Simulated assay, not measured.
Amino acid sequence: MELVDVSQVSAALFITGAIFIMLIFGLLSFGILRMFQLKYRAGTYSFIGAVVSAVAFGIILNTWFV
Rank of each mutant, 00 (worst) to 15 (best):
L3Y: 10
L3M: 12
V4Q: 12
D5W: 04
D5E: 07
D5F: 03
D5R: 11
D5I: 05
V6D: 11
V6W: 09
S7I: 01
S7R: 13
V9R: 11
V9C: 06
S10R: 06
S10D: 05
S10K: 06
S10T: 15
S10Q: 06
A11E: 13
A11P: 00
A12W: 02
F14L: 11
F14D: 03
F14P: 00
I15R: 12
I15N: 12
T16Q: 09
T16W: 04
G17Q: 04
I19A: 07
I19V: 12
F20W: 04
F20P: 01
F20G: 04
I21M: 10
I21L: 10
I21F: 06
M22E: 04
L23T: 08
L23M: 06
I24R: 11
F25T: 15
F25M: 13
F25D: 08
G26T: 07
G26H: 07
L27F: 11
L27P: 00
L27R: 03
L28G: 07
L28N: 10
L28I: 14
S29G: 05
S29I: 14
F30V: 05
F30A: 13
I32L: 12
L33W: 12
R34L: 07
R34P: 00
F36V: 03
Q37N: 15
Q37L: 15
Q37W: 09
L38S: 09
L38M: 08
K39S: 14
K39E: 14
Y40E: 10
Y40D: 07
R41Q: 09
R41V: 07
R41A: 06
A42P: 00
G43C: 02
T44M: 10
T44L: 14
Y45S: 09
S46R: 01
S46F: 02
F47M: 10
I48A: 10
G49R: 02
G49F: 00
G49E: 01
A50P: 00
A50L: 06
A50T: 03
V51S: 15
V52G: 07
V52S: 13
V52A: 15
S53V: 05
S53L: 03
S53M: 04
A54V: 02
A54W: 03
V55R: 09
A56N: 03
A56Q: 05
F57G: 02
F57E: 01
G58F: 05
I59R: 04
I60Y: 12
N62C: 07
T63F: 14
W64N: 11
W64R: 15
W64I: 09
V66F: 12
V66L: 13
V66T: 14
